[in-house]
């Protein structure tokens, strides 16, 4: 059983919802990422999502795009990201880590070489934004052989047919995003999300994470009532941006936010 499956199973028995914070690797500096990952875990993160910087992050909003730009200013590469996870694993053997990024850096490394290096580094899931399963059989096979979960996005416009084919290729969990399309946008319409989650769950038994509109403890709690996982990206990355010249302040600020979310989500 994968670390991700284990994690969701344990949470389910405890009646809790997973908290999945996102940061971009190498933002603001390469040396900041591993300590930030440990901070997030200490404050109650169940799974970590680590963004692999890309020069053209088409599916991301301005906040995450600027994080990519900061990380690329000192050439944070896919190799660097794998090395960060390897270092993180030296002192944390349990917390699942999911990479989120775009296909081109993986193409350049080669699917087999990437999957092997990712497995060796201790990566548990890979969400490649711009490769739908129809184009991705070879990458999927390379990941599966090494027990890495392929994670897929679902959108409000995903048809039941499409949800079926995506979830057939996915493992670990699926990630429901807003149509405002780009990360970091939009207001939360809980009823609409609840309805769509019903559609998704009618098709798959995989846990469903929701990844937009979660800004603070209150929105995290509200979402935790209906989703299996709450993914928090832009709210955290905004804090990284605000304190970009002071790593200690970043740790404090995002630690506080994630801690508050955790507490609100776990309160009866």
């Amino acid at each position: 059983m994968s670390r991700i499956e284990n994690c969701f199973m344990a949470l389910r028995t405890q009646g809790r919802t997973a908290l999945i914070p996102f940061i971009t690797a190498g933002d603001p500096g390469k040396e900041d990422t591993v300590p930030l990952m440990h901070t997030l875990v200490a404050q109650g993160a169940d799974i970590l999502e680590l963004g692999v910087p890309f020069s053209d992050p088409m599916a991301d909003g301005p906040v995450i795009q600027r994080a990519s730009e900061r990380a690329l200013a000192h050439h944070t590469s896919l190799h660097d990201v794998l090395e960060m996870v390897r270092t993180f694993r030296e002192t944390d053997a349990d917390t699942p880590v999911v990479l989120m990024g775009y296909l081109n850096p993986i193409e350049v490394m080669g699917y087999q070489a990437f999957a092997e290096a990712a497995a060796k580094a201790g990566i548990d899931g890979v969400l490649t934004v711009d490769i739908p399963p129809e184009e991705g059989e070879e990458l999927l096979a390379a990941l599966r052989v090494r027990h890495i979960d392929p994670i897929y996005l679902l959108a409000p416009t995903s048809t039941p047919e499409r949800i079926r084919s995506l979830t057939a290729s996915a493992s670990g969990f699926v990630y429901y995003v807003s149509l405002k399309g780009v990360t970091g946008a939009g207001n939360l319409d809980l009823d609409a999300v609840r309805a769509k989650l019903g559609e998704i769950r009618a098709v798959t038994g995989l846990p469903v994470g929701v990844g937009f509109g979660i800004k603070d403890a209150a929105t995290a709690r509200a979402m935790s009532e209906i989703a299996d996982a709450v993914v928090v990206g832009s709210a955290i990355v905004s804090l990284v941006e605000r304190h970009a010249d002071d790593p200690e302040a970043i740790r404090k600020a995002i630690g506080r936010l994630v801690g508050e979310m955790r507490q609100a989500m776990d309160t009866e």
Partner: peptide, 18 residues
């Protein structure tokens, strides 16, 4: 599906598929 040999195709996020 829009392939010219190994080139072309549809490499987009799920939000763009519809």
């Amino acid at each position: 599906r829009g392939h010219f040999g190994p080139y072309g195709g549809v490499f987009v996020a799920e939000t763009l598929m519809a």
